[in-house]
Design a protein around this nucleic acid. Structure first.
Lengths: 246, 246
DNA sequence: TTCGATGAGATGTGTAGACGTCTACATACT
DNA sequence: AGTATGTAGACGTCTACACATCTCATCGAA
């Protein structure tokens, strides 16, 4: 059962609804609340946490659209059946997700340069053709096997110092955040293709080998594009999982 | 500018926050509010709509995580720059999206049968191996070109009448809804592969041609799986777009 | 001129309560 | 037995208010 002694920290900076959300999430992950089980009613939770019912609802709301809980009007709030792949809609980087699965990951920088944007890159980044962009091209290995060629373009004007950063060990999105920009959304376009000569050589496969080709545009929360990337993944070593909602 | 005479229908069944959401969405789509523009403050909107501020916030919230608006703490709420591909995270079927783009779409049913579930299908649908499932295999054409082979498995117990439905013209998800089940979430796994013999023949390409291979599991809102599909897409005619958030 | 404090205005968080609607179940009536 | 009809409990919507926090422009002092 749920601990009755759950006490929120009302004085410090963390909003109560976030503490509630975290508490519930932990109780689900920790099996104190199991799939299918009905949560205490909102009134009851409000009393237990010592907050108002609206605050409880606010805490529950995020877990609902994360898919961890679901409501039945007039009946109650329940723990959803587990999805192993629940979180994959969220933006996570290649490095994060591979490392989370305990895989050995390595990144080699193939190119890091400033150059004028070509037509397609300029279009995606909403720049004029010829405006300067930073190009960061990398080859990524999992367990020693080359899996992905990454060719990223970033507006130079926005990150003039970017090439001074540790591109080998830090993820680009971390670097953006360190400049105060928060990545909010990414659009990915996926196709199946054959490996061309360069790609085949880098990924250590034959020409014509199946490649999962991906173009990605990354946006900030106000809709400004900050990165456009071409991405070539070895078909036999790379599987992309996507969760769609509603 | 925003119309001052916006009047909500307080007596009828539609919640105020939904009416507010709809009003704002229309004003954005109709260019009365343009990208980058600041909305009136929440207090102002509350006064204008004749509701409390919390209700305005509730109406705005959905538009925020749809990406149509964004907030800057202490500054205001703004219309986000347009994304052409804004809605692609939402679950839309192949038929819907192709038709929306004005393409000619056709579906041929290759197989419709009841059979015992194999291991992988049973696993994905959370059934015992050997339990009955319905198999619906289709070939889909866009503008007369075969683009996708779809091989879907549905628990027989849940939809015993399914094969009586018009599989050629109705989408499976519509059929589920007509039985009172609402599709809530889908997990897709994507790889690049080569076409095997059967697939090549159906899609009218050579063996070895690049194929975007997709496995998909579809869930209801309580987490019950209702459909597992193998999906083979011609690499040169099929491009999948995915939007990831946060 | 520059720097810092101040304050207005905006969003962020939280409360207490009211009333509506839906579901499930029990009870009473036919 | 079967069908209505309550009714309790749970979520759904909404209000009016209070205070916290953030941002930015402005004004004054160094």
């Amino acid at each position: 059962m749920m601990s009755n002694s759950t006490i929120l920290n009302k004085s410090e900076g963390i909003p109560l609804y976030i503490q509630i959300r975290r508490t519930l999430r932990e109780e689900i992950n920790g099996q104190m609340l199991v799939p299918g089980q009905k949560l205490p009613s909102e009134d009851e939770l409000a009393a237990r946490f010592g907050v108002s019912r609206m605050t409880v609802r606010q805490g529950i709301a995020d877990l609902i659209d994360e898919g961890l809980l679901y409501r039945r009007h007039g009946v109650g709030t329940f723990v959803a059946l587990p999805h192993l792949e629940r979180d994959h809609t969220r933006l996570t980087s290649f490095l994060e997700s591979a490392r989370q699965e305990g895989l050995e990951v390595a990144v080699h920088v193939l190119a890091a340069e400033v150059l004028p944007a070509k037509r397609k890159v300029a279009l995606e980044l909403k720049l004029e053709e010829g405006e300067l962009v930073i190009r960061v091209k990398t080859l990524r290995f999992i367990s020693g096997v080359p899996v992905t060629v990454h060719d990223a373009y970033i507006p130079y004007r926005q990150f003039p110092q970017l090439l001074q950063d540790d591109l080998q060990n830090r993820h680009l999105w971390d670097i953006y955040e360190s400049y105060g920009f928060r990545v909010k959304r990414a659009v990915q376009r996926l196709e199946a293709r054959e490996a061309d000569e360069e790609c085949a050589a880098l990924l250590e496969v034959e020409e014509g080998f199946p490649i999962l080709y991906k173009e990605r545009t990354v946006y900030l929360d106000n809709g400004t594009p900050v990165e456009f990337t071409y991405c070539y993944n070895r078909g036999d070593r790379y599987r992309l999982t996507v969760v769609l909602n509603r």
